[in-house]
């Protein structure tokens, strides 16, 4: 699947029309003027392609099984994502039915071309690499993934060999490895140094900044695109902070920060090594908030330091 900006705009218009026809007033909160400005994009250094800096994750949020009611609700979340231009959608065989639910939504919306499909291999059995990828592709309803990653470095040596071979044959677009929760950074660093990766995925947010020390500078040096997972620390960070605190006035003045989603996501994607962040949500309104964070002014390095100090003081 090719992620094409022109097609994306077309889909966006179609999707907006579909939304107007089918959504209730609450969901019809069309992107306002500021959200219609171009989304900030990050570059995949190895291919030169550009991606909106806000994508979406699917862990827990899209794992709804065969429940038709919840599948339709998640389809509206994807519709909002597409309205804003789409971008990376990240999934894994570990996430239960999330791939099938994403496939359901994309088929209903006719929006497969609006997403940059990112999947993972999650098995230690090296003989299962291709079978697992084919299985996930069938769930998504796709023939080809834009990015295939080795989940949490599990069996990475054998999987990467297969994935690079598949990339050479144009069966997948890019190759990456992932980690999360700040785990196995030393091993990830070794893989980044020795393998011709297109992407790495790691946990990075305002309260988990270990990657700043070595991994993010290394990614810049090696020309590896970086996906930041757990931008809200699994939801705990934003839920905890927004129930007790207002967004600071200086952030509103400095970079038009409207809410904590803006604050937390802009912190991540304003790091020069980060290509995109992948927040997950079950709510259409939250998707709008997430996607708006990828537009407008971004914090400067000085402001980013102030953001860290501010969150640490709360």
């Amino acid at each position: 699947m090719k992620f094409d900006a022109g097609r994306r705009r077309t889909i966006k218009v179609i999707a907006a029309g579909m939304a107007s026809a089918s959504l209730g007033p609450e969901l019809l909160r069309a992107p306002d003027a500021s959200s219609m400005t171009a989304p900030m994009t990050g570059t995949i250094q190895s291919s030169g392609r550009r991606l909106p800096v806000i994508g979406m994750g699917t862990w827990q949020t899209f794992n709804v099984g065969g429940d038709e009611q919840l599948r339709l609700a998640r389809t509206e979340v994807v519709r909002a994502f597409v309205e804003h231009g789409g971008g990376m959608v990240d999934c894994s065989p570990m996430y239960g039915s999330s791939a099938a639910v994403m496939g359901f939504a994309l088929e209903r919306l006719g929006a497969a071309e609006s997403v940059f499909s990112a999947e993972k291999v999650w098995t230690r059995d090296a003989d299962q690499t291709r079978d697992q990828i084919a299985g996930q592709a069938a769930e998504w309803g796709l023939e080809r993934f834009d990015l295939m990653q080795v989940h949490n470095l599990l069996g990475w040596e054998a999987h990467l060999e297969t994935l690079f071979e598949m990339k050479r044959k144009d069966e997948i677009g890019h190759v990456g490895v992932t980690t999360s929760h700040g785990r196995r950074h030393a091993e990830l660093e070794r893989v980044m140094e020795r393998q011709p990766l297109d992407f790495v995925q790691l946990t990075y947010n305002v309260t988990h900044r270990e990657a700043e020390q070595r991994l993010l500078p290394l990614a810049r040096d090696k020309g590896i695109a970086v996906i930041a997972n757990r931008p809200y620390d699994g939801g705990r960070l934003i839920k905890g902070i927004q129930t007790r605190h207002e967004v600071p006035g200086w952030a509103i003045d400095a970079f038009d920060c409207r809410n904590w989603a803006d604050f937390l996501l802009k912190f991540i994607v304003s790091h020069p090594a980060i290509t995109c962040a992948i927040p997950a949500t079950t709510q259409v309104q939250h998707m709008h908030e997430n996607m708006r964070a990828g537009r407008g002014p971004m914090p400067t390095p000085e402001l980013r330091e102030r953001m860290v100090r501010h969150v640490e003081s709360l």
Binding site: W59, T61, N63, L70, T123, R124, H181, R183, G234
Partner: peptide, 24 residues
Amino acid sequence: SAAGFLEDSAGYSLVDFVPFSAEV
């Protein structure tokens, strides 16, 4: 996959072992 999950589980919190939401 199951073996991988068990091998790979150190460092997670309890919430990371439940792959669905309360709503679901």
